[in-house]
Design a protein around this nucleic acid. Structure first.
Lengths: 349, 349
DNA sequence: CAGTGTTTTGAACACGATTTCATAATCGTG
DNA sequence: CACGATTATGAAATCGTGTTCAAAACACTG
């Protein structure tokens, strides 16, 4: 007995729409799927009635039979970090436009990724996974996730193609390559042009691919320009640590006349420490260069000169990777490559 | 024919685990659900084999029969905004601990919420919905979402219990009330104590409940203390608009000796405009008070005095609301209430 | 050991959609 | 108008799981 006068708070089902439109339940399904044969007038009628009844196909049921959840898992150590939140924002918009939704997961604070979280995520059956976490091997990720092919952001260095967790792991995964050389070269050239000689690098988290690659790139660029070795001092991508690390560095008398930070937020910490702890002027006394170009970098208090990774481009590339993989699940690894470039503002010059 | 030597890339199913453990499929289901009767040794065996086979119950299938998706929809106009990203971060962690996952959706830039997005979200069948967007009526949200009961953040004013979209809408929805009076009173008292008389308010988006309530609260507190009316100038919660609006206000010769901003990011814009456009000193020439207490507010360049909403408390309250509603779907409206308090830093004094 | 009460078990059904396949309706053509 | 070719239709099977219910196994008592 299929009551039509249901409690109204219940979800409408395809069956109800079918009865009301005097068609079969199959027709309703077809009405909602583009490339199926159904008489146009009939489709129109069904869609109209569906709207009246406030019906939408249940994605759980759809996922069960089609094997597509239309969910994209995003694993992040820290949503608050401006760069990541900006990327999540853009990604969510883009995915939404393609009929997907962002499923958010957080790792523990220390960038480490436990098996537990992966298993947990697996239950939701995401069609694809983007790991902002860098120290989990593709092999592990793939084994836990089954069908979904993970996407990695990679920072290739010439003559040293594989680093970190991606070294020697041939498991199928797609890649977004970010070439840092370009922007870094422009930055070093600019800083050198203004007479800087003692250059320091504030690192990010020790095992972070991004930070390690940036340090190595800086090292090479400096060597090529006869600038010797950078003074490396340890950070973790956060403001507070950057601030404290800068205090340590400059209190030891060492100092530097230019500081490259592994990310923009770190650069803010450097700038504030220089100004408020030592009364140093940026850029007159010390030049500062960041990495990322986040929204906050143009704020007047910082006006940060930074190596930019174009966020819109980056997200477009990620979405392209996702869609291509879904179309060809068995294809060999896909790759996209992005350049960086310098954005000149007030902290150098 | 149930092949055991499957292609390995396929997800393991309960059936496979059952065969391998020589039990029925039902037993496997029971092994994964706590309050079911199953011989302990049997449960242990099943769980062990499940782990070997890397099996996890499929949540889509589970959702289909249980009616619980374990997804919480979060609708945000802008993930990048620090306050919202920090809340999403904390919320995601908390939900994860309770066995849920965050499903993220973005509205168009203008805080407006189209029916399209709601229908889209409905397809994913979230168990609960948190709307960071403030101008959508509960009635509409409820009608579109069916089973899920929406949660609203509300800013009650004494003697004027209903404002904005919540006015005259008796549709069932749960509420998190934020009482702003406390913190605001402390702030005004402090500012007045330092001799400020001409007080301005930088608003947020025009129809934002939060901004309107903050303005009204400020107005009342000032009246009570014989401070007259605040000078209201329009912002939209963003840095750039705040900066430009401040330039406008102070260029007109009007000025003010204290500025309250609708949120912290807006306060940053005010501070930078005062310092870099007019050479004014904060706090000596102008005092500035923000609202929220985001992570960035303690950065040395701003060191913002601000009215704090405790994020951890707030998220705990939201999660309590979600869980309570899921336990008692038919219960009358739930409510939680939070206080605000002043955090004193360098921009007043 | 018979009798009663409790726990464990698995077959059958349900959930809400898509996909397959055989049949019915429609179209185009000579 | 008859015929083959195409398109439209719905009955039945399917996806992977939770839930119900009656039977089976077990434990306890006198």
């Amino acid at each position: 007995m299929s009551e039509s006068g249901a409690p109204a708070r219940e979800r409408a089902t395809a069956q109800m729409v079918a009865e009301r439109a005097r068609v079969s339940r199959v027709a309703v399904s077809r009405a909602f799927n583009p490339h199926t044969s159904l008489k146009p007038e009939k489709r129109e009628l069904i869609l109209r009635i569906a709207q009246e009844l406030n019906y939408t196909p249940d994605r759980a049921a759809r996922a069960l039979v089609s094997g597509r959840s239309h969910l994209v898992g995003v694993i992040v150590p820290d949503v608050c970090s401006p760069w990541e939140s900006q990327e999540i924002d853009a990604l969510t918009t883009a995915l939404q436009n393609e009929g997907f939704a962002t499923l958010l997961f957080k790792t523990q604070t220390d960038m480490s990724m436990d098996q537990t979280l992966l298993t947990y995520m697996k239950g939701f059956n995401p069609d694809s996974v983007i790991a902002f976490v860098e120290n989990i091997k593709p092999a592990i990720l793939a084994r836990v996730l089954g069908r979904a092919v993970p996407i990695y952001v990679h920072y290739p260095l010439e003559g040293q193609p594989e680093t970190g967790v991606l070294a020697a792991d041939k498991t199928l995964h797609d890649r977004l390559n970010i070439l840092q050389r370009n922007g870094m070269e422009q930055a070093v050239a600019l800083v050198q042009g203004y007479g800087a000689r003692r250059i320091a690098y504030l690192s990010g988290l020790p095992r972070s691919l991004a930070s390690v690659a940036r340090e190595e790139t800086l090292r090479r660029v400096m060597a090529d320009r006869g600038l010797g070795e950078p003074i490396v001092f340890p950070g973790d991508f956060t403001y507070d640590t950057a601030y404290a690390a800068t205090v340590d560095l400059f209190r030891m008398g060492q100092g530097a006349d230019a500081v490259f930070a592994a990310n923009d937020v770190g650069a803010f910490g450097v700038i504030d420490a220089l100004r408020h702890e030592f009364g140093l002027r940026v850029p007159q006394d010390v030049k500062v260069v960041g990495f990322d170009d986040i929204e906050q970098s143009h704020w007047k208090s910082y006006s940060l000169t930074t190596v930019k990774i174009d966020l819109a481009e980056r997200v477009r590339a990620l979405v392209r990777l996702i869609l291509r993989r879904l179309n060809e699940p068995e294809a060999p690894a896909f790759e996209e490559t992005l350049q960086t470039r310098l954005v000149v503002r007030g902290t150098v010059g």
